[in-house]
Design a binder for these strands. Structure first.
Lengths: 292, 292
DNA sequence: GTCATCCATACCCCCGCGGTATCGGTCGGT
DNA sequence: ACCGACCGATACCGCGGGGGTATGGATGAC
C-alpha cells in the first residue's frame, strides 16, 4: 500500500510567491523589490517554474509583461493555495497557544455591523455549558473572509452578497432590507422610500471610499473612511451617505436619518467558518447562532 | 502601497510533505522510505519545521511517535494546503491544454450512480448554445471529491451525506430514498420494505468492501469490489447485497431485485465545484443542472 | 545482559538560490 | 535617426542548505 508516487512535486512555495508577486505587479523589477531579492534570480525562478510546468505563464516583451490564460489561472489558484498554507501555519500556532492559555475562538465581525445579532449571539453562547471563550475581532468591510482564510480567525459573520464565501462553509442567520443613512434635514429624508438611482446622483453626498484589500483608497469625490463611527459622523456632517442593513437603525446616533431603499438587494447575514474545521467550539457557536 | 512584509514564510512545501508523511506513518523510517529519502534528513527537516514554527508537532520517544494537538491540526490543514497546491498545478496544466485542443470540462461521477440524472444533464447541456465539451470521468465512490480538490476535475456529482463537501460549492439537485439490491429469489425479496437492521444480520450476504482512499481494502467477510458492474454481478450470484439510491432501479440487470429500505437516510445528489472557479463552462453546466 | 529497533547527531558533498555585471531589445525624446 | 533610459535575460560566482553515510544513544524485548 501507499504505492503513490510520493516524489514528483513541481511547484514550490517560494516560486509560487514569486510568481504571484510578478503577476500582481506585471513588472519583474518592482516584484523583485517587493520580494526583497534582485531581479535576475526572479527572472530565472519564473522561467524555471514555466519550464517545469511546461506552460507559458507570462508573455514578456522587453517593455511589458502580461499574463497568459494559464497564468491567470495560476494567479487565482496560487493565491488560494498560499492562503491555505498561511492558514495552516496560523492555525497550528493558535493550536499551540490553546494548549497553554486558551484564547478560545476568534470571531471576525465587520466593525459596526450586525451589532444586535452579535450581542444576542454572545450572550446566548455565554450561557452554554462549557462554552469556549470568544474573542471578537472587529475588522473592516470584506476583511472577515481574509481573516478566515488566512487562519487568523475561526468563524465570522459575513454579509451576502457582498462577501465572497467561496470555499467557506456557511449557515444563514437572517435576511433584511437596506436603508440609506442620510444627514438629518436633507431633502431626501422627506421621502418614504428611495431607489438606488436616487442616491447615485446626489452631488453634495458622494459615496464614501473604503480602503481596498491592499490598504489603498480608490479614486473618487467621496471622503476616505476607515471605521463606522467616523463614517456616521461624516454623514451627520452632511459630507456623505451610506446604505446599510436595516438592523443598523437601532444604533444610529443623533443627526442622521434612515430611509428604506426599496430596490436594494436584501442582505443576508451568514455565519461562516473554514472547511476542515474540526473544532468543537466553532461547531457549538454555529449551533447557538442557528437557534437565535 | 503593498508594504506588506512579503518575506517571512515559514513552511515550505517540501517540509510540509515530509511532515504529512511522518504524521501518517508515525514512523520516521517508513516515512523516509515512502518519500524516497534517508531517515536523517527527514528527522532534521521535521526538527527544523518545529523550530521555525516554535511548536512541538510530534512527541517522540525512541520507541514511538505520536502527534501533539498542534501536530494534528497541521496534518489536517497541511493536507488541505497541499491539495490546493496540487490543484493549482493541475488546473494550470489543464488551462494550458484548453488553449490548444479544448478538453472542455471534466465532470466526475461515481461509476454506476445517478445514471438517469447524468444522461438528462448531458443531453440538456448538449443543446445549450456554446456548450463546452464535457468529459465524464467515472470514478470509485468518494473519489469525486478527491478529483475535484486536486484539480483533475472541474465539477462533480456527489451524494450527501456520504461525500464530504467541506470547502466545495454545491447546489442540490434531487433527494431520494434508498433501496436494497438483493439476489432474485432471496427470502428478503418477499418483503415490501426493509430496515437497515434486517440487512446487517444476513450471514449469506455480507456487505461488499470498497477500496479506501489509500487503495487498500478494509477487513471483513464481504467480497472486494472495485466497480459497480462487478458488484451487481456479485449480487446476482448471491454473494453480497448493496444499498443504493432508488434511481438506480432503472438500470438494474436481470437476476437482482430492489427492495425499499424504509429507515435509510435519504440521499441528496448535489452538483459540486471547487471554489474560486472562474470558469464560465462550469457555471453554465451548473445552471443547466438546476433547471432539470 | 544483550540485541534489535529507532530517532538524533556528526560530517561530507554538491546542487541551486541569490548576488553582481552585462547584454540585447524596445520605446521615447530631440 | 540617433542616443539614452528602461527592462528582462544571460553569465558567472559564492555559499547555504538539502541529502547522503556512519554512528551515537535511548528504550524495550527476550
Amino acid at each position: 500500500m501507499t504505492a503513490r508516487a510520493e516524489l514528483r512535486w513541481v511547484v514550490d512555495t517560494r516560486e509560487l510567491r514569486y510568481f504571484v508577486a510578478v503577476a500582481e505587479e506585471l513588472h519583474f523589477g518592482r516584484a523583485a523589490q517587493r520580494l526583497g531579492i534582485a531581479q535576475p534570480p526572479l527572472s530565472r525562478a519564473i522561467s524555471r517554474l514555466e519550464r517545469r510546468l511546461g506552460v507559458a505563464l507570462l508573455t514578456r516583451t522587453s517593455r511589458s509583461v502580461v499574463l497568459t490564460a494559464p497564468g491567470a489561472v495560476l494567479l487565482e489558484e496560487g493565491r488560494a493555495a498560499l492562503d491555505a498554507l498561511d492558514a495552516a501555519e496560523n492555525r497550528v500556532r493558535r493550536a499551540a497557544l490553546a494548549a497553554d492559555g486558551e484564547p478560545g475562538v476568534v470571531l471576525a465581525v465587520k466593525a459596526g455591523a450586525s451589532g444586535e445579532l452579535l450581542a444576542k449571539l454572545l450572550s446566548a453562547h455565554a450561557v452554554e455549558p462549557g462554552a469556549a471563550r470568544i474573542e471578537v475581532e472587529l475588522c473592516g468591510p470584506g476583511q472577515q473572509t481574509r481573516l478566515l482564510r488566512s487562519g487568523r480567525a475561526d468563524v465570522a459573520l459575513l454579509h451576502l452578497p457582498f462577501d465572497d464565501v467561496a470555499g467557506l462553509d456557511t449557515e444563514e442567520l437572517l435576511t433584511e432590507g437596506q436603508v440609506a443613512v442620510l444627514p438629518a434635514g436633507h431633502p431626501l429624508t422627506t421621502r418614504r422610500g428611495l431607489r438606488l438611482a436616487d442616491l447615485d446622483g446626489v452631488p453634495d453626498l458622494p459615496h464614501p471610499r473604503w480602503p481596498g484589500p491592499d490598504g489603498g483608497y480608490p479614486d473618487g469625490p467621496g471622503p476616505e473612511v476607515h471605521d463606522s463611527a467616523q463614517l456616521l459622523q461624516l454623514v451627520s456632517l452632511g459630507r456623505t451617505l451610506v446604505v446599510v442593513p436595516e438592523s443598523v437603525r437601532a444604533q444610529l446616533p443623533e443627526g442622521v436619518v434612515a430611509v428604506p431603499v426599496v430596490d436594494a438587494q436584501p442582505v443576508t447575514t451568514v455565519i461562516a467558518w473554514p472547511p476542515h474545521s474540526r473544532s468543537l467550539a466553532v461547531a457549538q457557536l454555529v449551533e447557538t447562532a442557528l437557534r437565535l
